[in-house]
């Protein structure tokens, strides 16, 4: 917009505007193309990791500064969903559910664990637990990812499982997908790119693949209709994927409970819906399982 009409100066300004905007558009398009085609170790991914490391102290400071606002919002949203009324029951339920899951899991897996070393609830010995604060989250609804304030300096590596405590229990919430020296990126299990091999305790050890379907909703696929899955059955990590390959998650980490089961007459597999123990939307703190034993390191190195 110029008040000098079609003078040569105005034309040169218009040309300069076009050049500046054209160059910016070109840079963006090249970034999108290169980023979309390169692997996680590509130049732009490394640039993103490097920038993440640089901004971590700033983000950490801002995150601490706005923590009261985050807490206030969390409290308000909790109020809306009658959180305070349910708090007492949830606490009691959490204790009972934890005990139930552990008892069921031990009863079912005990004999097998005794015979096969490295499987089962022994993961607690294989990993050191690294508490971390979430200092940034993806502002896009398309990615359920967050940046935490712990990195490789604290033993966190790519493929480290991430746990958290929620209102109704503690459980698996995600996995480390990028790790820098002082910060890392967690991809939550609600991220469309994340899937977890799971087993349903109480359903004859049915193995399936857990994937998000909609915000806050999860589905377990690959469970044959012959397996007796029931609402309320606890779901834990299987330790291996459907193809029998080793999983990055150790066996036995709690995730949630079966919310619904169904199938049509012609289906060979049933549709199982899961409600997770932890809602990742309002998480502020997580615990990263940093590999300690050789088995855990081998799991983390799984491609």
């Amino acid at each position: 917009m110029s008040n000098q009409g079609n003078s040569p100066l105005a034309q040169r300004r218009a040309m300069a505007r076009r050049v500046i905007i054209g160059v910016l558009v070109l840079v963006c398009v090249i970034s999108i193309t290169v980023y979309g085609r390169e692997t996680n170790s590509g130049a732009l991914h490394r640039l993103q990791d490097g920038a993440g490391t640089v901004v971590t102290p700033i983000q950490d400071g801002v995150s601490r500064a706005v923590q009261p606002v985050r807490n206030a919002w969390g409290w308000l949203s909790g109020l809306v969903s009658a959180r305070d009324r349910a708090a007492h029951l949830a606490q009691e339920n959490q204790l009972l559910r934890g005990e139930l899951v552990q008892l069921q899991f031990n009863a079912e897996e005990g004999p097998r664990i005794a015979k096969v070393a490295g499987l089962g609830n022994e993961w607690r010995a294989d990993y050191s637990q690294v508490p971390a604060t979430i200092i940034g989250r993806s502002p896009s609804p398309w990615y359920a990812q967050a940046r935490i304030d712990k990195g490789t300096n604290d033993g966190v590596v790519v493929n480290s499982p991430v746990l958290a405590a929620g209102d109704v229990g503690a459980g698996l919430v995600g996995v480390i997908t990028q790790a820098g020296p002082i910060s890392s990126v967690v991809s939550f299990i609600s991220d469309p790119q994340t899937s977890v091999g799971v087993t349903i305790v109480g359903a004859s050890g049915a193995i399936g693949l857990l994937q998000p379907t909609a915000p806050g909703a999860f589905q377990i696929t690959g469970i044959p209709v012959t397996y007796p899955v029931a609402t309320g059955d606890p779901v834990v990590t299987a330790g291996f994927s459907q193809a029998g390959l080793q999983s990055i998650y150790p066996r036995g980490i709690e995730i949630g409970v079966v919310q619904g089961v169904g199938h049509r007459a012609v289906d060979v597999q049933q549709t199982v819906q899961l409600v997770p123990f932890v809602n990742t939307d309002s998480l502020a703190y997580v615990v990263v399982l940093a590999p300690k034993s050789a088995l855990a390191k081998q799991r983390a190195a799984t491609p």
Binding site: C28, L47, P139, S140, Y143, V185
Partner: peptide, 26 residues
Amino acid sequence: GSVAGAAAGMAVELAAPGGTLGVLAL
């Protein structure tokens, strides 16, 4: 506006996890 928009988008994509670098900038 364009320069600020591109810079802000790139900064968000660099600082926050997730997303394809360049999309928000554009």
